[in-house]
Design a protein around this nucleic acid. Structure first.
Lengths: 195, 195
DNA sequence: CTTTTATTTGACATAAATGTCAAACTTTTA
DNA sequence: TAAAAGTTTGACATTTATGTCAAATAAAAG
């Protein structure tokens, strides 16, 4: 039974790598099995359907992310510190799972079930209010908070999503591009904060 | 034969809407046929394979975009005007074809043929030099030009790519979100230009 | 108007992916 | 150590998407 848990976890880990890191959202159970060194049927034994595994991987990742972010947003830190931590957490997560929101977008487009929790709307509004307050204090560039939010997430997410394209365009290796992504915190903040 | 051209064009238009506007990159020939009011086999009659149609739609769109952008980048306009036009063109295009680079990224990930022209690398370098020059003149926030470029494309592209997600999160209609996107020019520039 | 050419469409063949089952095998437990 | 429970895997059935073909129809050319 020890090995069983291992096999199950091993399949999840392999699937996570394929779905979220490599972005191969249409990988088959055959692909996943092969990558895990198992026959396709083992994947079905543990998860019955491809879809169960798929959703498991994504809900796990989303939960991991949102719990970390929520504790930052709900904290009493001064806004400048808070936004710094927020950016840092997102950047780390973006590098770990570059295709997380590609997945969410794809699911919404295809009208599938999306594991976005109910309170997301309320938390978004709360976040927008915090942004407005920071603007009133003169910490942030003045603009409608919605645009600030769009700018923030754009700067955080796009370079990870579009990594394959920019690696090719800039003709840099995987390692060099990862290095670029790590440097981004400073430049993301520079584009957002008042100076 | 007049009708033929019409049918062929009608299929392309329908496919473009499905692939690039709705982002349903895995729509089947059946889906496309149905949306065009035709049996699936008509799609095959005109394009033989799904793949031919798929590539046709994307190379057409990419060519349209790059030709417009190149004429702006290669022009002798002062940098501030140039970047303004560039942003405006991209924003329009992003709204027209929100999923254009999702496609390019997906193709690269799946190691498919990508219709990115050979000179893209050279033009990118030229663009980076122009950015450096503008920074030296004090027009732009100082940072490595690569990061400026990543910031620029992030701000331009992400809100269109992730539209389905933010429409849900902000609880706004399609029309309202389109209005937001149109307003973005000012806020994109605000995040990039020195002030 | 009739022959040639182009278009439309249903029927068929093939391929790819999924999911189920049961037999063989391993591990746990009583 | 024998029975029970859990695991692995190949074989089969089903579903979905693709692509081809040929008969029916429509349009163009002679």
């Amino acid at each position: 039974m020890a090995k069983a848990r291992n096999t199950e976890q091993h399949i999840i880990d392999t699937a996570r790598k394929i779905f979220l890191v490599e972005g191969r959202l249409h990988a088959t159970t055959e692909d996943i099995g092969k990558a895990a060194g198992l026959p396709r049927t083992s994947v079905h034994y543990y998860f019955r359907t491809r879809d169960v595994l798929f959703k498991r991987v994504f809900t796990d990742a989303l939960e991991d992310l949102t719990s970390k972010l929520n504790s930052i947003v709900e904290s009493d830190l001064p806004f400048t510190t808070k936004i710094g931590q927020y950016v840092e957490t997102w950047l780390l997560f973006s590098m770990m799972y570059p295709h997380l929101d590609t997945f969410v977008v794809t699911e919404i487009i295809n009208k599938e079930y999306v594991p976005v929790d109910k309170s997301a709307g309320a938390r978004t509004n709360d976040f927008l209010k915090q942004i407005q307050a920071a603007m009133d204090k003169g910490i942030l560039l003045k603009m409608p908070p919605v645009h600030f939010m769009l700018n923030l997430f754009s700067l955080l997410r796009y370079p990870s999503i579009a990594a394959p394209l920019y690696k090719q365009l800039l003709n840099v290796s995987d390692k060099q591009y990862q290095k670029l992504l790590k440097e981004r915190k400073a430049y993301v903040l520079k584009a957002l904060l008042k100076r």
